[in-house]
Design a protein around this nucleic acid. Structure first.
Lengths: 237, 237
DNA sequence: CAGTGGTCTAGACCACACG
DNA sequence: GTGTGGTCTAGACCACTGA
């Protein structure tokens, strides 16, 4: 037996979880901690990585459950397309929730991104993507109200600002510069994704450019690892 | 004052850290916890995100220090190049440490990646990238020993397997399929990067392909967020 | 209501760096 | 040695869910 509780714990939890059928419930945290001979804090720390891998799911007030196989959303990064378009193309069912549309004045940060003046009105659309009733991504689009205003959302808005702009045809979008990072979930994002503050997320930060080189849309995306497989083909210099 | 210790703490720590000069030392954790009226556990949790942003640096047995401005390694993902080549191109100084070269038989997993038989000998090169004496990336390359054996490392090996193969000219490398994810640091990787187990890392998992479509090299890369800015230009479908 | 996970506390012991 | 961060414990209270 190892002298390091954490490594031993990970092994025991791996056995336990893999031996349980999908959707079954784990013992409560106090019970499990006692059974495994560690404190609840240590147990919870060891469980974190299992949740980021999508192997278990914790629900406050309910319990912790084993997740069966997860549909992975696989996508190349060369082409920009909405999650909806992507999921549809690979035959996966996703839904959108918590859509929120606000019109507000630009602060310094967003004015800098969109290359507009501070105080100009902007439209901000945020939403959560679900697959199998599990929130897996949180997306925020911000763009000048002159490009997208409230009454542009009238007909058949599926949640994706990109799809809306593409369907409208104007402005003529050409490309997106996307920065990729790994971050800890803030309290706000954690709430939308039903995870704990501090959990690991894959983060995209992108500016959408039109044919005149103008910044049309600034978008922030947060993805749960384990549910997405983004890849890129890199050519050798 | 907020009723939520964590949010209040983040604010107070932001003020404190930004008010201190670069390289200065923060009070010890017990002292800071007492001063801010929280337990050490809560304080440490709040400090995690500051460390992943590269704003502070903890050194066991020494203390916690404020980091000045950090040189960010900025790179597009369209072209595959070694960290050394990249840093050189943008005029940044990086160094390599903890280089380890092993020859061992392929297990099932790596055999599957390289499309070889289990038990065939493989060469594995792992190393750590430093900038400003700070470990910022941990890289592992694995390839068949028939392609790269121990005596290929004789002359001017700078740590990069990619550069070695490119300089040699054979096999003719063409592209790399790179999968991008966010992960929690395992104990092993955390040790090399001088961070805590569970900290957030940006992770690349790539297969390097030659002109015949053969898998030449399987590589795993772990990057500290805050020190890298990877981006990709995505064209609109 | 009872039971769950989410957060926080106070304290302990360890491994490590440095004089 | 002293002092630091790294880990773990035992217990408490909270917010939430569902019967």
């Amino acid at each position: 037996m190892s002298h390091f509780p954490f490594q031993r714990l990970q092994g025991e939890l791996t056995s336990l979880i893999s031996s349980m059928p999908a959707d079954s419930q784990l013992p409560s945290e106090p019970a499990l901690a006692k059974k495994l001979g560690v404190s609840r804090a240590t147990l919870r720390e060891a469980m974190r990585s299992f949740e980021t891998q999508g192997l278990i799911r914790r629900k406050q007030g309910v319990g912790t459950f084993v997740i069966g196989e997860v549909p992975v959303i696989d996508s190349g990064l060369e082409v920009l397309e909405s999650i909806e378009t992507l999921a549809n193309r690979i035959g996966l069912s996703v839904s959108t929730g918590s859509i929120n549309i606000e019109i507000l004045p630009a602060d310094e940060e967003i004015a800098g991104e969109l290359l507009i003046s501070i105080g100009m009105m902007i439209t901000r659309v945020s939403r959560v993507i679900f697959t199998d009733d599990r929130p897996v991504a949180y997306l925020v689009d911000t763009l000048p109200e002159t490009i997208l205003s409230r009454n542009d959302f009238q007909t058949g808005f599926n949640g994706s600002v990109l799809d809306l702009l593409l369907n409208r045809g104007l402005p003529r979008l050409t490309s997106s510069r996307t920065e990729i990072n790994a971050v800890n979930a803030s309290s706000a994002v954690a709430h939308f994704l039903d995870i704990q503050r501090g959990d690991v997320l894959l983060h995209f930060r992108a500016n959408l450019i039109d044919s005149a080189g103008k910044v049309i849309d600034h978008s922030l995306s947060y993805f749960l690892p384990g549910y997405f497989n983004f890849h890129v083909n890199r050519r050798v210099g």
